[in-house]
Amino acid sequence: MEIGQSVVFTIPIFGGIPVTTTVVVTWIIMAILTIASLIVTRGWNQVPTGVQNFVETIIDALNSFTKDALGEYWASFAPYLGTVALYLILANTIDLFGLTPPTKDLSATSALAIMSIIVVIIASIKAKGLKGYAKSFFEPMPFFFPMKILDMFTRPLSLAARLFGNIIAAFIIMGLISKVVPIVVPAILSIYFDLFDGALQMVVFVFLTMLYIEEAVE
């Protein structure tokens, strides 16, 4: 069992850029989401039916969720949170289709976590201005400055490690179980470890990102 990702092929520029399975699976997910969003938004009616109803429900839930938490800034961050949510739900459960989940790679989860922290910083600057953002490091008192700096590092670390740890733990446990009992039992347990845990980790990641943004814009 390897913790790293295997290299699928190498782009022959700059002395060879290795492309891992994580990146390839991410591309597959991107293709699926792009095609799905193109198909799903075609030929909409004023009265929703079928697929349109489903999509509207999901996006309405996302919009009202961000509206409740972020107030007037919801429109800027709802698409980002929605993108992360859609990407993560597919990435976490793609193990069901026999592909390696990208979130099993610490490189991908740390990229997600760093992006979330960048979005939080952008939100803070947007809400308070550059000066207000700099000042927020010294609030409520200057004594807190080192803690806030530490927070900047522990937040992405815990986001990335949580997602990575949960998914790889599920992956390893599923691998062990299918070595012990190869039939029936893995199928039942994968409902919990792949579907439920994947969806739960997606919710936790998006929720924590939104919580950080909410804290930043207040």
Partner: peptide, 26 residues
């Protein structure tokens, strides 16, 4: 909401332990 937040934060310790175990093994 608070349960989810608290669960995620307290879960972090277990995740750190898991990470350390992986680091030791690999």
């Amino acid at each position: 909401q608070f349960l989810l937040l608290g669960g995620a934060l307290s879960e972090a310790t277990a995740i750190y332990g898991l990470l350390v175990a992986f680091l030791i093994i690999f």
